[in-house]
Design a protein around this nucleic acid. Structure first.
Length: 437
RNA sequence: GUGGGUGUAGCUCAGUCGGUUAGAGCGCCAGUUUGUGGUAUUGGAGGUCGAGGGUUCGAGCCCCUCCUCCCACCCCA
């Protein structure tokens, strides 16, 4: 048997996991700052809950199988559809409903850079409200997370399904025929106008005479969002879907600019989003320094999804942060310290006889909220100091026979190389204040 | 999933034309005399050469299949 973990899956060793957990804690904090409580749902759902929600390509990526009771089940593909199921199943949930959920999802895609088959999503959703304020709040929360991570160079690329539908109408496509066209449109900036025209010409029913105005909207999109909007209006203003989309995006821009995150927001009429359940605003987030890893945060409005379960229309919007992808990107950019160590203090185990004293001192430190490790066996002080140094533990406490008699400790600052014989409580003070002598 | 590349010690990599017992640096472990890290020095452990098959007197090296990872397409967090 070959010992390895599944393709597309990965282990997070302690050095990485410590950092990932810290990122997750920050995300949770930001979500709760905005008034969202957590939700948890099972990893496994009845397959029929998930099928028909993600489009044909998405559906092929489901991890789907029969359980031991011969039930047709599947691992969740995202956190949004399970949320819709919860809303339909628990009828008395008050509206508006807010929740965040941080949990792994599974997609049987071919793994690539920044793409895994198991990855964690951090979702925030606001249900029961269809308003520009609700839409804008998602962007505000997303930007708050990025700010929390110290990420400045990124762009929230925003679009609206109404604009996309209007663009499709321009070329004579409607409803289910939109998919192929939008897929090619989405990669326009990558393949260029010429290849775009070429690929798009293969779509049955396409009215090529409208292509010029489509390209006029998308290609001339300058970076100023207001200009992009007026540009869209100029070209698609006669379309009612486009008009209300422009109206909504204008209101959203007013809010996000007031919230101070306008500089991160772009209107990009080419952003399509593959998931089929989006109905209004859609957005994706790319890091300027590492666009190859793909979108690190995206989402949109899905006003029809809950209705697919309950039959009752319920407007909804959400945003999803890909923490693994973000972690990967930050690692690639060298912004994550992987050799970290939770202990701030190592208490040396001087001898087997002094073990009780060491543990007692360690307890005292921990009571003060200081992460403390006791060396697990009696060994040479040299070796224990070496260990502290290699592990990145900044302080060492030594309690030997002398100190035991006097009721003191040797307190060593590893970085400064200084050492003093002081009381344990003085050591606590020094650690807390960060002073070395 | 399709196409291209890749794989030798924990890590980064040498390894000649197919020829004896596969190497280096870093890291790791243990010493350098018994209460103190980073430097120095000595010694040591560690490899089914990604896996399986084939060609050959002989394969890390050539051929086939599979797997991994990387790049592009596709799609996305």
């Amino acid at each position: 048997m070959k010992v390895q973990c599944l393709k597309g899956f990965r282990d997070y060793l302690p050095g990485e996991m410590l950092q990932k957990e810290r990122m997750l804690a920050s995300v949770r904090e930001v979500f709760e700052q905005h008034g969202y409580p957590p939700l948890m749902t099972p990893a496994l759902e009845y397959a029929e809950v998930l099928t028909g929600k993600y489009g044909d390509e998405g559906e092929m990526l489901l991890y789907r199988f029969r359980d031991n009771g011969d039930r047709d089940v599947a691992l969740r593909y995202d956190l949004t559809v399970p949320l819709a199921r919860v809303l339909a199943e628990h009828g008395n949930i008050g509206m508006p409903f807010r929740r965040y959920q941080i949990a792994p999802v599974w997609r049987a895609e071919k793994p690539a850079r920044g793409r895994f088959r198991e990855f964690m999503q951090c979702d925030v959703d606001l249900i029961g409200v269809d308003s520009a304020a609700a839409d804008a709040e998602m962007l505000v929360i997303g930007a708050a997370v990025m700010q929390r991570f110290g990420i400045e160079n990124y762009k929230l690329r925003i679009n609206h399904r109404g604009v996309l539908s209007a663009l499709c109408r321009k070329v004579g496509l409607e409803g289910s025929a939109e998919g192929d066209f939008l897929r090619i449109l989405d990669k326009l900036d990558k393949i260029g106008e010429e290849k775009f025209r070429q690929e798009v010409s293969g779509i049955p029913g396409l009215d090529a005479s409208g292509l010029d105005s489509v390209l006029a909207v998308v290609l001339d999109a300058s970076s100023d969002p207001r200009e992009v909007l007026s540009h869209i209006e100029k070209n698609l203003g006669s379309d009612d879907l486009a008009t209300s989309a422009i109206q909504r995006m204008t209101e959203i821009l007013d809010i996000v600019e007031a919230a101070g995150i306008g500089k991160y927001c772009q209107i990009d009429p080419a952003i399509a989003r593959g998931l089929s359940y989006y109905t209004g605003l859609v957005y994706e987030t790319f890091l300027d320094d590492l666009p190859q890893v793909g979108s690190v945060m995206s989402g949109g409005r899905y006003d029809d999804l809950v209705g697919m379960f309950s039959g009752k229309e319920l407007p909804a919007i959400g945003i999803s942060l890909g923490i693994d992808r973000l972690f990967y990107a930050l690692s690639e950019m060298g912004l994550i310290e992987t050799s970290s160590q939770p202990a701030e203090v190592l208490v040396v185990l001087f001898s087997e006889e002094s073990a009780p004293a060491s543990f007692s001192a360690a307890s005292g430190l921990r009571h003060e909220g200081i992460n403390t490790m006791v060396y697990p066996k009696a060994a040479k002080v040299k070796k224990q100091l070496q260990f502290a140094q290699k592990s990145g533990i900044p302080y060492v406490v030594v309690i030997g026979d002398e100190e035991l008699k006097k009721g003191t400790v040797q307190f060593r600052d590893m970085d400064a190389g200084s050492q003093d014989e002081i009381s344990l409580s003085d050591a606590v003070t020094r650690i807390k204040t960060g002073q070395t002598s």
